[in-house]
Every structure is written in C-alpha cells, then in structure tokens.
Design a protein around this nucleic acid. Structure first.
Lengths: 208, 208
DNA sequence: ACCGAAGTGGTAGTGACTACCAGTGCGGTA
DNA sequence: TACCGCACTGGTAGTCACTACCACTTCGGT
C-alpha cells in the first residue's frame, strides 16, 4: 500500500526531526543559540549539516515550529459566533492552552511541558528567535481571522477582526512569557485568563 | 567649543545616514529587499560596504529605526495615571501618531509621510523586516511598562501592565498595517482609535 | 604647525543558507 | 527474486550578512 509506505517514511522522518530538535535545544540551552552552529547540532545528532536543512528550513525552526496554530484555528472555527470577538478568540486560546499543557496539573511537569518550557525560554531570551516567533504570531493571526466565519468581505469587518485577533494574541504571548518565567508552576490557562482580564476587562473572559 | 564640534560631526553623520537610508529604501522597493545586497546600497550611496555597517548595525536597521519609541514612552509618562491602563496607553499612542503624521491632513501626503509609508510597506511585506519590527515592539512594550509609574515591584502588577501594553501595541500595529494598505488616505489616529474600539470596546478610547 | 579623534576603506574570516551533483537504501512491481 | 524508482543523504562550491583587525585620511581644536 502506498499508504503504509508513506506512513513508514513519515514516521522515520518525524523521528529524525525529533532527534535533531532535542539535540539542538540541549546545545542551544547549554552554550547559547548564537554560539552553537548548525554544524554542531548536526554533529551531535550524528548527521551531516545538509540533513539539518532538509528537515528544518532555518536554524530558528529547530526551536520554533508551533503546531498549535492549526489547533487554535480549529478551536475558533468550532466556537459559536454569537459573542464578542475578543471573548470568542480568548475562549479558544484558553481551551487550546488547556489541551496543550495536558489538562492535568498539580503534580510535576510532563516531559512534554519541560520541552515546551525549554523552547519558550530560548524564544524569549534570544532576539532572533523571539523575532521570528512574533512573526509566526502574525501568520497565526491571519489564520484566526480566516477561521472567524468572516461575515463579509467588507474590508472594515476584516480590519476590526485583525485588531481584535492581534490584541488577543499579544495578551496570550504575555501569559506565555509569564508562564516560562514561572517555570510552569502556574497553570497556563489561568494566566491567559488573567492577561485577558487585564487587557480587556474583568468580564470579558468567562471562567467557563 | 566641544559642543559645536560634536554638533557638526553629528550633523554630517546624520546626513550620511539619511543618504544611505534613502538609497536603501529606494533599492529595496525597486528590486526587493532580499535581492538587494548591502554592497548595492553602499555602491548607490557612493561609500564602501564597511561604512554602511558603521552607521547601521544590520541591514534591517536601514529600514526600521523607529525613533517614536521614545516619544511614546514620554507621552505615557506624562499622561495622568488615574484611568484604566488600556485607555491611558491608547491615548498616548493616538497622540504620538498625531505628532508623527504631522497633525495636518486633507491634502497630499508630506514627504515625511511618503517616506514612512515606503518603510512600512517594506516592513509588512518582507518577513525578515516584519519579524525584527515586531521584536522592536517588544522592546517598546518594556519601555511603556516602565513609563507607567509602576505602582510597585509586585510582579502581578507588572504582569497585568505587560498584558495591557502588548495588546495595545498589537492593536496599534494593526492600524499601521491598515494605514499602509490604504496608502495613508485615512488618518492614522482615527484608525488607531477604531482598532482600539474593535479590540477593547467602543467606550475605552475617548475622542479626546 | 601639530595632535588626536572620528571616520573611512581593505582584507580575511565565520556562519547561515543554497544551488548542483552523486551515491544509497528501501518499498513496490514484473 | 531481480529490477526500477524515489526519497533521503552527503559533498562541494558559492553567495551574502556580518565581524574582527589593519592602516589611512581628514578635520576640528590647541
């Protein structure tokens, strides 16, 4: 089956990517992002520098790669449209965060969360990564606007949606930074809710 | 006088910088940012590639350099503290935009606005520039938070201010993008006010 | 007339990234 | 089972942003 074929290929590919990413983030954390060359990462993972570029278009993508973008967009599309934009987007962001951090809390962090935290810390402290990450938010913003059924092609509606979406993402990002500074001790969804309350008023995001 | 001395030096330096920037933006607009090398810019301005780097730390800074950051921070610090964070920051941003676009409108764009528009268009369409510009917003956010008298070192207060500031800047950025797409036909302060209304509610920013 | 500091240019290098080319393993087919 | 094809890998050479480290000029102030 061509299905199985491509599945196997994809699996191996995913493994190599995870291997590269793990080594990269370890080295970046240890020695610093700028002080670590792509060659170093390749060497640590036991592959040639070429292979790194085959899997990740840029050095920055070794750290970034948010796959939650799609998750958030789906969450938005699935949410009821009959509510203020900010409330709608905020709810989706919080829900996505809950999914992302695993939903369970009170004990120690899961390896997944540790990994996420390490990446976040790098993203926050390294200018190049921070810049590209914020630019990714920009793309995510477009996805969110597209996911909001968009009542019309009327440019004004789109503009208002853009404004709301960008402000929401900014608030979420602030919560993410805080979460990283806190080493993940505070629950991420709560932090996002607090950030939204600070920016948009106490009543805008429900406690669900 | 040492004063006069350094003033003359600074003047000439500023002229060279403006020359370089003008040529750079013209070339970037004509051929595209990535397709234009720093050597090209240096050649067009009649200086050596080295000189470019003496005046601008990176190629991106040939386009970016927002000097309004300081203006906004001052505006914030001068605004009365007894009002909601978002309203306070929003007012300062709108006031800064009014200063920036010259205050006068209805006729044609000033050369200064043309220049600003050209840079904005580049910033929006070029990923590398967009990313760095958004990262500059991040620094600006810190400046804004610092300018808000900061009632206490209590981390929670700072977090709430960060959230509000980031959301405000995001809304402003959306307005800037819209302004550029509109070729500057709509008044920038009005666009910012509209963006704020969309994100934070109709009542949050006064019409002054 | 002279000194010193700022500005300029050159050279050689590093590191991210991109073609272009040649192997190599491994799944699916005859 | 032998063969074909294709994805994946590695190598080489090159571009370009950017960074030391160098010598030179120029020009304001003594």
């Amino acid at each position: 089956m061509t299905e199985q074929h491509s599945t196997l290929r994809a699996q191996r590919r995913a493994e190599t990517q995870r291997l590269l990413q793990t080594h990269a983030i370890r080295l970046f954390t240890e020695r610093g992002y700028d002080a670590t060359t792509v060659n170093d990462v390749a060497g640590a993972a036991g592959v040639s520098p070429m292979t790194v570029y085959r899997h990740f278009p840029t050095k920055e993508d070794l750290v970034l790669i948010d796959q939650y973008g799609q998750l958030i967009a789906e969450q938005i599309a699935a949410s009821p449209a009959a509510q203020p934009l900010v409330r709608r987007i905020g709810g989706a962001l919080i829900e996505s965060a809950r999914t992302l951090t695993g939903g369970r809390h009170g004990g120690d962090l899961t390896p997944n969360e540790q990994f996420l935290l390490a990446r976040l810390r790098l993203m926050i402290s390294t200018p190049a990564l921070r810049a590209k990450h914020l630019d990714n938010h920009y793309a995510l913003q477009q996805a969110i606007v597209a996911a909001l059924d968009d009542d019309g092609a009327e440019p004004d509606t789109a503009f208002l949606a853009q404004a709301a979406a960008s402000a929401c993402l900014a608030a979420m990002h602030t919560a993410l930074v805080r979460w990283a500074e806190d080493d993940g001790r505070t629950e991420l969804p709560d932090l996002i809710a607090k950030a939204f309350a600070a920016a948009f008023g106490d009543d805008i995001v429900g406690t669900d």
